[in-house]
Amino acid sequence: MNLLIGLIFLAGAFAAVRAFWPQRQAVFGLIAGVTGATLLAVERAALLTLQFWAGLIGFIAILSALLVILHPNPMVSVLFLILNLFCVALFYLFLQAQFLAAIQVIVYAGAIMVLFLFVIMLLNLRVEEGLHLTGGVQRPAAFVLGTAFAGVLFWAILHRRDRPFLEPPGSAEGFGTARDLGVLLFGRYLFAFEAASILLVAAMIGAVLLAKRRLQ
């Protein structure tokens, strides 16, 4: 049964890749895949388990991340990066970080990605520019090194000490709210907070200077 769900997910993934690839439209395949998976999940009453949802979101996150780096059209990359950011925001909700989830959507999806979108529209890059891949040795080397890096990461994660790094300090009431984060930011991390504000001002001035056509 798990295998079947996995296969349907794969079909949906394939359809999604095809749908956003130039000259291919298989949106219906995507819809069918997702519906099939959902129906199966309902049948197995898996819909109510956190694991099912976490798995689904993780799957979408990885798929969208792959599309970000592999799609020839930067605009579509932006869209899938937004999808990826939403998935990570949902993970923050799983991890008791409601405030971070909201901030993730506001700052990343609402501001930074709009900036990317705006620049792509301003430069008016078209689809025909194609997939700019590095040639020669670097491409296979990148895949080998990237996979090796992932392998090392997984090895580290799977072999890490099984007990928590820090002891849980009693109850977790109100963990991850704006108030908790604010108390820390304006208390223990006040200096870092102010430094971050200076960094933002510097970045803003730098961006304006760099992008301005001519300085007077």
Partner: peptide, 30 residues
């Protein structure tokens, strides 16, 4: 561990993206 695994995969994908893509905007996105 589940979240760490997902994060590891995402980080590796971003890493590959920086190495193989030559479009500066896509590199920033990675």
């Amino acid at each position: 561990d589940f979240f760490l695994l997902i994060a590891g995969v995402l980080f590796s994908i971003g890493c590959i993206g920086v190495l193989i893509r030559r479009n500066a905007i896509v590199i920033l996105m990675s």
